[in-house]
Design a protein around this nucleic acid. Structure first.
Lengths: 227, 227
DNA sequence: CGCTGCGTTGAGCTTCTTCAACGATCGTGG
DNA sequence: CCACGATCGTTGAAGAAGCTCAACGCAGCG
């Protein structure tokens, strides 16, 4: 279950020769995290960046009143905090383990050396940042232009796509975290799910969602209302 | 007024030798845009990316009902659509000129050749994407965790910072665009401004904002309420 | 078997949006 | 140079979506 990815299998470092990989790895530090443990907080100084080896992190912003907005989820082979390395400044968000997680701390200089050896690595990071940027654009669109029920419908379809286009989909997060991902609170999420269920579009049992009317679900996901 | 930036002054290409710069420039195409003209629409195929030489663009998402959310503003020396080059896929948003604007279309291959000549260019783009990512994180935070009045207060402070910490600040956009930037509509923005004015925090005359009580403004910007 | 935490449901309230009307401003053409 | 129309910004009233607070059911766990 706790699949651990080795550096040689990390797409970001594809292109590095195994000797360089070995050197890179030697300069990293392994950091084990338990569920709920904080990796860093918004405003912290960055000493390098992190690579998730196993488990999962949430990267989030929190409000003075305690509400949280998840910016993205980070899984095995994916980097966290690397943007600070490129642009400078302090960490713009916080990160916390959603389950038992192991990350690698990669010091700034070790990374720069790797890039010098193999410029292709920089291109991989460009691709990675670009993908994240696209994800953020979608998030902004959801928060600003879609209502909660539409976001949920869209997420179910997204999960269905990533989980093999089945009609059986598993939420990979508890309700509260799911709500933070959608930019809302558990109560509202609960009501949105209930609405989808009541209209016969999906069936919901705990974390399992069964898609009953895929077309209706698609309809809700991008138009929702009017037009 | 219409300051035009030359390629040699673009930070992204700092590091390129002038001969390489000349070659790069020779492979670009100049595209003049009038105010309101569309550069590309969400879903378009990208042939390369664009660099703004003069003027200003908005990059935005639009909803079926016609509302728009501005993702970012792009000025002289800044790139648009480059993320698609790195990550593939189609353009995730639309772009339109806010005023008379000239952009350079830089073909994918011309860019790749430049990077091959000078790997430092890749690092510059990493920094640029990272900054944009940070901006997007702030946008998400605003949309999800702050109310409109707080966003406006924050923006006024931001403008004050960028315009030299004066108490006299100029909105650089008409109301409607400003509203799109804040993720709301002109009516709501108008009321938010009115509230700030009524509490004596700022004074507003058309696009000019005079900060009357900077501390109160800061207070509104990050806490707003409770705690 | 009871405790604890998560998820759901209900009622009331706040914020924001919608729709409509109105005033001001600016550019244009007479 | 002025009058006109179009656009932009503001204001008001009503409605919708989402949030807060509180209570409750239920499952998992000690």
């Amino acid at each position: 279950m706790a699949s651990t990815i080795s550096l040689s299998a990390v797409p970001l470092f594809a292109g590095l020769r195994s000797s360089d990989l070995a050197e890179l790895e030697a300069r990293t530090r392994r950091i084990p995290l338990t569920r709920g443990q904080t990796l860093f907080l918004e405003g912290d100084e960055a000493r390098g960046f992190y690579l998730v080896r196993s488990g999962r992190l949430k990267v989030y912003k929190s409000s003075p009143s305690g509400r949280e907005q998840i910016l993205h989820l980070v899984g095995p082979g994916e980097p966290v905090g690397e943007a600070v390395m490129f642009a400078g400044g302090r960490l713009p968000a916080s990160a916390e383990a959603l389950e038992a997680t192991e990350v690698l701390l990669i010091p700034r200089q070790a990374f720069l050396d790797a890039v010098r050896r193999e410029p292709e690595v920089a291109m991989q990071f460009l691709a990675s940042l670009s993908q994240r940027l696209r994800f953020m654009a979608t998030l902004v669109e959801n928060l600003s232009l879609r209502e909660v029920t539409e976001r949920v419908a869209g997420y179910v379809l997204y999960l269905s796509r990533t989980q093999g286009d089945r009609d059986h989909v598993e939420f990979d997060l508890p309700r509260g975290e799911l709500a933070s991902l959608f930019g809302t609170i558990p109560e509202t999420l609960s009501r949105a799910l209930q609405r989808l269920a009541q209209e016969g579009v999906v069936e919901i049992d705990r974390r399992t969602v069964t898609i009953r009317d895929r077309d209706a679900l698609k309809e809700m996901a991008w138009a929702g209302r009017r037009l």
